[in-house]
């Protein structure tokens, strides 16, 4: 989830370059009660750096701690990826000891297990995207047609609930429902079948993963669509009705185009995080019997790196994954801006 900038008019947020100079003068009068620099106000451009610091030093002081935080806990690990190209000794320099070039990169490119988990990741991510992206739209459309406010609110409250649960709890529920004594097998045996140990069967893993993902995310995913739906101009429905459009055609020709920017934005975000398929959930759900379908890039690099202590190798894989993710967000954003005019930035 992130900020969304669409073509919808958004006066509060927009500040085009032209608007800035127009607003500049009154702004500066207001913000300089001490009358310290009447001269600067006239030079319509940016104020000199020294003046800016003199006036805003308290603001700059406030961001020092957050910036140090970002530097240490966000940017240092990014640079730490350099160990993908350097030999790393546990306990040694966190940026590694000596350059080894592309040794670790060629190692994973020649690693058949890597390509296996890569294709697992693409399949699992693709399935999740295909199933989990449209369902919230459908649910939002259904909710939007509900006229009884109390009923709508109750449905919303219940369907948002799974979003607030720890992934551990969700996996716990999945395990209980699918255990040999669980509800799924109670139904199967009641119908005369034999109980299936779902979590030990590789062929069931993808179904289980995507199904629980839907359960967890479908309700929460409707929020932005519901908000977008309320902004669709009501007169468009009237016009459509006069033109003889029934409800389905109204949904198709008015409602869906109305929420298209929201759809595109969320699609871009989903595509960008496509390879990061719920690492924590897979880690909790899989076991050696289901590795053949369940093992994904992030779980593989977790085992290689942190369990087998091959940190440089795992860092190379992680860097590769992060770069693919970045490229995918950027290109999805670019295509969407070209094709439908909605983009993240």
């Amino acid at each position: 989830m992130t900020t969304i900038k669409t073509e919808q008019p958004n006066p509060a947020a927009a500040h085009p370059p032209g608007g800035r100079s127009g607003r500049g003068a009154p702004d500066q009068v207001g913000k300089e009660p001490l009358g310290q620099s009447r001269r600067v106000k006239k030079s319509a451009g940016r104020r000199p750096l020294r003046k800016a610091i003199q006036r805003d030093w308290q603001l700059y002081a406030l961001v020092i701690v957050p910036l140090i935080f970002l530097a240490i806990f966000r940017y240092a690990p990014m640079l730490g990826n350099v160990i993908a190209f350097r030999r790393f000794r546990p306990g040694g320099n966190i940026f590694g000891d000596e350059w080894v070039g592309l040794r670790y990169v060629s190692m994973f490119i020649n690693d058949p297990v890597f390509w296996h988990v890569f294709s697992n990741t693409v399949i699992l991510g693709g399935l999740t995207l295909v199933v989990c992206f449209p369902l919230p739209i459908l649910l939002a459309l259904l909710l939007n047609e509900v006229r009884k406010k109390a009923f709508k609110r109750i449905v919303q409250s219940i369907s948002y609930l799974p979003h607030f649960l720890s992934i551990v709890i969700i996996v716990g529920m999945v395990m209980q429902l699918l255990s040999l004594q669980g509800t799924a097998n109670q139904i199967i045996t009641a119908l005369g079948g034999d109980a299936i140990p779902f979590l030990q069967r590789a062929e069931w893993f993808r179904v289980i993963y995507v199904g629980s993902e839907v359960w967890q995310t479908v309700g929460w995913g409707t929020i932005l669509y519901l908000a977008a739906l309320t902004t669709v101009d009501a007169s468009l429905y009237e016009a459509a009705e006069i033109d003889g459009a029934n409800r389905w055609r109204q949904i198709w020709h008015v409602t869906l185009p109305g929420i298209r920017p929201t759809m595109m934005t969320l699609l871009i975000l989903n595509i960008g995080t496509f390879l990061n398929v719920g690492f924590e959930k897979v880690l909790l759900l899989y076991n050696p019997l289901t590795y053949s379908t369940a093992d994904v890039i992030s779980t593989y690099l977790y085992r290689v790196g942190l369990v087998s202590n091959n940190l440089s190798y795992a860092a190379a894989i992680g860097l590769f994954q992060a770069l693919i993710g970045l490229v995918m967000v950027l290109s999805a954003n670019f295509i969407s801006r070209r094709v439908v005019g909605a983009s993240l930035w």
């Binding site: 690990p77 730490g80 160990i83 966190i94 960008g272 977790y302 942190l306 860092a315």
Partner: peptide
């Protein structure tokens, strides 16, 4: 930027 690109598990662990 940190939303779209992060260090990853291994460098974080090392840090």
């Amino acid at each position: 930027f940190t939303m779209f690109f992060n260090g990853g598990i291994v460098p974080n662990y090392v840090l």
